[in-house]
Computed example of a mutant assay.
Amino acid sequence: MDARPLLPSNEPDVASSPLAVRGLTVSYGEKPALFSVDATFPPAAMSAIVGPNGAGKSTLLKAALGIVPRLSGTVTVFGEPLARARSRIAYVPQRASVDWDFPARVMDVVLMGLYGELGFLGRVKAQHRARATDALDRVGMADFADRQIGQLSGGQQQRVFLARALVQDAALTLLDEPFAGVDAATERAIVAVLKTLKADEKAVVAVHHDLSTVPDTFDHVLLVNVRRMAEGPVATAFTAEALQATYGGRLAVAQLDRVAPR
């Protein structure tokens, strides 16, 4: 299906976009995970990447970061190639991709966010620990600094990984399913922290699966199912028509009435 007519025309400017991809194509074997995707995320905003399972949402983030190779396409971060702007990005991976049996304390995990600043053998100083403690405090985890990461609940682990991103003070934060498997209190806490980043003129891009929370949480949305199906401000791009095209007509009418205008 060619979804190009669903695309709004008022896209953010590529040069000022915290993350812009053009013609992004990724393949696992002979099956394309993404095909010629264009996306331009706006600055100082919270953006969601939405689509069905297997649509390429997480692959888009990983390809943009260079974690998985791309067959074709370009990626720019604030108008610069990824290689020159990597230090401006913080990344929160899916919880399921992390080895939680690794023997590390909460404080150690957060300090890993300063690796680019400290280097491989850099000495952790009091100022670095203070920054890590402040990041933990922002996510409500300061009292757990000495706890082994594997001893925490899923929601607590997610908060710690958000703290690791916060300590970097990055201009762009990318999150892969940050609300998957967490309790409602943790989700509210994470949303509140992400909104403080937006208030500080920083950009947030998150892979997201809960359609019902998109309108209240995000400003901008990319709907993807291997191809880009629609993109733009939530008020204009997150429509019943675009969602049905993205999900192949599998969404119930009652569900659409709850989350998107007709």
Rank of each mutant, 00 (worst) to 15 (best):
Y115V: 15
P12F: 03
G113E: 05
A3I: 04
L243A: 06
R105E: 14
T236K: 09
V14I: 11
F41T: 13
D108M: 06
S17R: 02
D137R: 15
K57T: 04
L60Y: 10
K202G: 12
L65D: 05
F144L: 03
A96D: 14
R95S: 12
A132S: 04
E117F: 06
E11G: 09
L118E: 13
Q127P: 00
S212Y: 09
V92R: 03
D169P: 06
Y115F: 15
L118R: 05
A85F: 04
S87G: 08
F41G: 11
T196K: 07
A163R: 06
T246G: 03
F102C: 04
S47H: 10
R131D: 08
F102D: 07
P261N: 14
A48K: 01
Q156E: 11
A3E: 05
G150W: 11
A184S: 12
P12M: 06
L175C: 08
A189D: 14
D99A: 14
A15R: 07
V77P: 00
A235S: 14
E231S: 07
L162K: 02
A45V: 08
P43D: 11
A230P: 02
R159Q: 08
A132P: 01
P32S: 02
T246W: 01
A240W: 00
R84V: 07
Q151T: 15
T236A: 14
A63Q: 09
L222K: 03
P43W: 12
P215V: 07
P103S: 14
D143L: 09
M141V: 03
R4D: 12
G232E: 04
A132E: 07
R70W: 05
V221I: 10
L175M: 12
D210E: 10
D183K: 12
T239Q: 01
A39P: 13
F144V: 02
E30R: 15
L172Q: 02
K31D: 09
V109I: 13
P5S: 15
L118N: 10
G73M: 05
Q244R: 10
L111P: 13
P52R: 00
L162T: 03
A185T: 13
R262Q: 07
A237V: 00
L194Q: 05
A130I: 06
F161I: 13
S17K: 02
A170T: 04
F161S: 07
S153V: 05
V139E: 05
D219W: 01
L24Q: 11
L111Y: 01
H128M: 07
R227E: 13
A199V: 10
L111V: 08
R159K: 11
R250L: 15
S97I: 07
T74W: 10
R22P: 03
H208T: 02
A90T: 08
L222R: 01
A203H: 04
P215L: 04
G122W: 01
F218K: 03
P215N: 05
R4L: 14
F144Q: 08
Y91E: 00
V224H: 02
P5F: 08
P215H: 01
